[in-house]
């Protein structure tokens, strides 16, 4: 599993961001280390602390570093000169909160450093499309860049699963909030243990398909309660993947009042 380092000026901000992201994963989160504050309650960052955090979570599969702003980025780059690990260390320009959540979910599912970084950098996608749908903010130019970075990943995953032998099944979303972040995270993590390529399409709205291995992709469907979604799977355990997804959907992803 890759390691994740969270660099912030504020220990409280880093802790809260990590706690929020951990809501999405189960008992065994990926290795996460926080390097925040400059000691003695000083708001700031410390490159030595960042280097120690990188070394702490490095286990041979790479480390992804999230930074809030300003000197956090300088301390991050400086830390790569102080660290002792020979792991690949990537400083990501992903959004701090959205990116961290996407990364922790995908890292927990065993994804590679490249995959996790790509997912994290595209993590503004759902918020942008949601606000654009509502006639609100139009994504800024640089945001479009990051959104288009994510799009090929989702599309690639989608086309990979669209083979001639794909198994397909449809189900109606019954939980009150539809495919929001927590069910999306549950899908990504459940499928990580199943040998199948899966895509999801919102039949009601015509959105998708998106790769079911992408938290951001699933969230970007914006699938709501009572909408019909179609799961399509290929691979050795395609049937198991479909059965599992149908069951999870029927159970409302554990969100139905008992």
């Amino acid at each position: 599993m890759i390691g994740i380092v969270v660099v912030s000026h504020s220990p409280a901000l880093a802790r809260a961001a990590v706690d929020l992201a951990l809501e999405m994963v189960g008992e065994t989160p990926p290795p996460i280390a926080i390097a925040a504050g400059a000691g003695d309650g000083i708001i700031g960052t410390d490159a030595v602390k960042v280097a120690e955090a990188i070394d702490e979570v490095a286990s041979g599969e790479g480390v992804l570093v999230f930074m809030d702003l300003g000197s956090a980025v300088l301390s991050g780059t400086m830390a790569t000169e102080f660290m002792t690990t020979s792991d690949e260390v990537r400083l990501t320009d992903a959004p701090f909160v959205e990116g961290l959540i996407a990364a922790i979910v995908l890292a927990n599912a065993g994804a590679s450093l490249d995959e996790v970084d790509r997912e994290a950098r595209g993590a503004m996608g759902p918020k942008q499309s949601q606000l654009a749908d509502q006639g609100g903010a139009v994504p800024a130019a640089e945001s479009e860049d990051s959104a288009s970075d994510a799009a090929p990943a989702v599309a690639a995953a989608a086309s990979a699963a669209d083979g001639p032998a794909a198994l397909t099944a449809e189900a109606t979303l019954v939980n009150p909030d539809g495919l929001h972040s927590r069910p999306a995270a549950a899908i990504v993590q459940t499928l990580a243990g199943i040998d199948a390529k899966v895509t999801i399409r919102d039949v009601t709205t015509g959105k998708g398909p998106v790769g079911a291995n992408s938290l951001i992709g699933i969230m970007s469907l914006g699938a709501k309660k009572d909408e019909v979604v179609a799961f399509s799977a290929t691979g050795a355990a395609a049937q198991q993947a479909i059965d599992t997804l149908l069951e999870m959907t029927r159970d409302g992803f554990g969100e139905l009042a008992s």
Binding site: A38, D46, A47, G70, L74, M78
Partner: peptide, 17 residues
């Protein structure tokens, strides 16, 4: 190194370097 670990702001890594 002392500046890097004690300053906190951007001047830490910059003066530190």
């Amino acid at each position: 190194m002392t500046l890097v670990t004690s300053v906190g702001g951007a001047s830490g890594p910059l003066y530190g370097t």
